[in-house]
Design a protein around this nucleic acid. Structure first.
Length: 279
DNA sequence: AACATGGTCAACCGCAGTCGC
DNA sequence: TGCGACTGCGGTTGACCATGT
């Protein structure tokens, strides 16, 4: 009923994109835009499904994409945002101009997660790991009961992973102030801290710099309330989320690729891609 | 030099919400 | 109003590359 059936998957190509496919897609999208992803591959002459085209465009071909590893500032911002938003990568990516949710997700899983664990911080809850996993940081012994309760709530992997569920579904795109962590403040600790990051019920948002890593490791028995300190030291500002990151990261916008010296086509070997077509 | 292991990341899969008929 | 297509999202996979043995 209603609409035409979804793209039939028979005969559609899968796997890595070739430079020729990229060129076709980019040429088409730049000249026509995309009214409907389902039609894009057909109109562009691609044997791909619309979903694949959309993914390729948003994750790789978009002209405003940044390339290369995340900077320390971006990494720290990702950690901060993850502490507030959980695994909502698209929301996190929206705060990092030029970065995609896929890229951030990959970076989180491959880099940041490991670093946090190394620092004795649970990458899910952004709190110090339990003593069993982090014998040098017996923090739970010094925690106030409300904090322990809060951790229990956050520790549920299914809830964290499926934060899109009804419980978290109440928020919308403008939910910066109504985050899981901040919403939990009335229940307990950390509510008096000045910055949203550190106010997240004691949730720490450590940077991944070695300096803060050592700082965190150097305070194994510290009071939980002291945990944000290394973060402040690293950022040299209090309240990272109050900062205008869009401004800080300016130069990543649609017109800024040249400003930041990014060659949009440098991933194409040789002259596999016609820059003139793009421009 | 050859093989094994681990790390990285692009791409796919499946689900949920939204929207159109 | 209900059904089904479409879109967007998060999780997972698998190929490729680097490093270690």
């Amino acid at each position: 009923m209603g609409r035409q059936p979804c793209c039939e998957k028979v005969g559609l190509k899968k796997g890595p994109w070739t430079a020729e496919e990229d060129q076709k897609l980019v040429t088409f999208l730049l000249s026509h835009g995309h009214c409907c992803w389902r039609l894009v591959p057909k109109l562009a002459g691609l044997l791909r499904c619309g979903k694949s085209c959309r993914l390729r465009w948003t994750n790789y071909l978009r002209p405003d994409l940044k390339r290369g590893l995340l900077s320390e500032e971006e990494e720290a911002l990702v950690i901060d945002l993850h502490a507030q938003l959980g695994n909502r990568w698209s929301k996190i990516a929206a705060r990092l101009p030029g970065r995609t949710d896929n890229e951030i997700k990959n970076h989180w899983n491959t880099h940041i997660k490991k670093k946090l664990k190394k620092m004795g911080i649970d990458p899910v809850t952004h709190r110090p790991l339990a003593p069993a996993a982090q014998p040098l940081a017996p923090l739970t012994q010094q925690r106030d009961p409300p904090q322990a309760k809060e951790e229990e709530r956050c520790d549920e992997p299914s809830k964290q992973a499926s934060s899109q569920g009804p419980a978290a579904g109440a928020d919308d795109d403008e939910d910066e102030e109504e985050t899981p962590a901040s919403a939990a403040q009335p229940h307990g600790a950390g509510a008096t801290t000045s910055s949203p990051a550190s106010a997240a019920a004691g949730a720490v948002s450590p940077s991944c710099s070695s300096s803060s890593a050592s700082a965190s490791a150097a305070t194994p028995g510290a009071d939980v309330a002291a945990w944000p300190d290394p973060i402040d030291l690293f950022f040299e500002v209090d309240g990272i989320m109050d900062m205008d990151w869009a401004g800080i990261l300016s130069g990543c916008g649609d017109d800024a690729a040249a400003d930041i010296g990014v060659d949009l086509f440098d991933h194409y070997p040789g002259d596999g891609f016609d820059e003139q077509v793009w421009m």
